[in-house]
């Protein structure tokens, strides 16, 4: 089953992160691309959170401890390589989860969108991994920084680890990159134990609603 709150929060938080790139992406095309990825995830978040309760109350009125998103999606954007790696790691997971649930209407629709997300991250991983010394250095740093957050993805979905790993390692091979060795894993997001990054993200996401309750466009 797709956890409405867990995956809905993943989509909402990652959507907000990607939206932070708008007006400051490396090129106009990537600005538009990242905004489109954000929009897909926002749509999926709205459908999933509406299953768990009132979407606006869930998005605007919960404190960080009430959020059930994994720690990976709340990680700050960093540089473009960091965002690409985060998206490769998460979109590959979400694509596999959606593909596993064709009976779920959000998943059946979302899987087609996530196929584009995964491919976007794949193409940029190859380009940056095989680009310059600098882009390769940044990809390597992003992998080292984000890899410890991947274990949490599979706590609720152990069967997805193998297909996820096959795809991600395939992309890393094509990119001339490799996954970091083992190391300690960080988890807690699914229990509401978040890093300070989520508080900062929610401060921005919720500020307007908290100051002007019921405000609409």
């Amino acid at each position: 089953m797709i956890g409405a709150l867990e995956i809905g929060d993943d989509c909402l938080v990652l959507s907000q992160r990607l939206a932070e790139w708008v007006t400051r992406a490396p090129t106009l095309e990537e600005d538009i691309a990242l905004a489109n990825l954000s929009l897909d995830l926002l749509g999926q978040a709205r459908s999933l959170l509406s299953r768990a309760g009132d979407e606006d109350e869930l998005a605007y009125l919960r404190d960080p401890a009430g959020f059930r998103n994994c720690l990976l999606v709340e990680q700050p954007n960093g540089d473009f390589a960091h965002t690409v790696v985060r998206h490769l790691l998460y979109a590959t997971f979400l694509h596999a989860l959606y593909a596993d649930h064709p009976e779920d209407d959000v998943a059946a629709k979302g899987v087609k969108e996530l196929a584009y997300h995964r491919d976007y991250a794949r193409l940029w991983s190859v380009r940056l991994g095989r680009g310059t010394e600098e882009s390769r250095r940044r990809m390597t740093a992003a992998l080292e920084s984000l890899w410890p957050y991947t274990g949490e993805l599979f706590d609720d979905h152990p069967a997805l680890r193998a297909p996820w790993a096959a795809y991600v390692h395939g992309v890393l091979d094509d990119s001339g990159l490799s996954a970091p060795e083992g190391g300690p894993q960080r988890r807690g997001g699914r229990r509401g134990e978040h890093e300070a990054h989520l508080t900062e993200l929610l401060d921005e996401l919720q500020a307007l609603h908290r100051e002007h309750a019921g405000a609409t466009w």
Binding site: E29, I32, A33, A35, N36, L37, L39, D119, Y120
Partner: peptide
């Protein structure tokens, strides 16, 4: 192909 993402979600450029 200039970009997979265009002026709306459903278009590429």
């Amino acid at each position: 192909l200039v970009s997979r993402y265009g002026s709306t979600a459903c278009q590429a450029h």
